[in-house]
Design a protein around this nucleic acid. Structure first.
Lengths: 145, 145
DNA sequence: GTTTCATGTAACTTTTAATGTTACATATTG
DNA sequence: CAATATGTAACATTAAAAGTTACATGAAAC
């Protein structure tokens, strides 16, 4: 996987977990389906675990599973748990902040970014994991063994 | 300048142009103040020129100037002219789109991104170059010779 | 017209963040 | 204790942005 957002990776993994209720999926199995690496999966799902969205268990028959129903997981929950940034950063060079113009630009941009984050979060809250899952399932998809 | 957004660079340059009405500023002079390179300035302002926000003139006493009053330049105008992305990209790996889940995730994310772009553009439209400039000028700033 | 100065732009290098990889410690099941 | 999975550190790779160099093009001043 070259350049997809961690958010997309997370959602893809979560749909797989939702599709296999009661069965823990390993990082390795998910990595194969997501066309990425097991460590990358652990890094992403590790954040979701800290956010209480998924559970992880070690040992034989261990792996990842949803911590609560897909209906109760919004994209905002996932976004927040990951500390993900949907907005690109706009800070200026630290050596440049002695300039009053730079400070004003930074301040205006910060106000904008703060507003934008709130707007985005509100929009993300409107979509739930179950919305993605039901659409994907309606079309059929390969299950993990 | 290590990692600031092109949008910040553009706004910084535009405020300088606004502060020196009737006088064209060169890429080299702006680069010094923006703590970056003249070619970077030309690349950014070149897009604004195509968007009708600034004018460029060659030869002695040439350089960059605003194409219209700062009151008539919104952050949205600048954003649009630059084809800038405030949102990080979320596409999945092209080799992965045979998976129905990936396609559903991508579709949901695309809907979200489209909505988000509209929200951000509307928010950007509320701030004008003159808003940034008047704040910066109230605090004083170094003029370019 | 020639000199000077500025933009326009191509080609290349450097830098940075994200991602991928390897290796191994830790914990859990049976 | 053997097998298996997460957790994580350390390092390598990759891709995008920015920086740099070099030079062609065009406009003003003399």
């Amino acid at each position: 996987m070259k350049r997809s957002s961690r958010l997309s990776i997370a959602l893809h993994a979560l749909v797989h977990l939702h599709a296999q209720p009661g069965k823990a999926l390993t990082s390795a199995a998910l990595a194969t389906c997501l066309m990425t690496n097991a460590v990358v999966v652990r890094r992403v799902l590790g954040e979701l675990r800290e956010g209480g969205i998924v559970d992880a268990s070690k040992g034989p028959n261990g792996g990842w599973s949803l911590a609560r129903p897909a209906e109760d997981i919004s994209l905002r929950d996932v976004y927040t748990a990951m500390g993900e940034r949907l907005l690109v950063r706009t800070e200026s060079d630290p050596g440049d902040v002695t300039c009053a113009i730079v400070r004003s630009v930074d301040r205006v941009m910060k106000e904008f970014i703060d507003d934008a984050e709130a707007l985005l979060a509100a929009r993300l809250a409107r979509t739930r994991l179950s919305d993605i899952a039901s659409e994907a399932m309606a079309k059929g998809f390969p299950r993990l063994g």
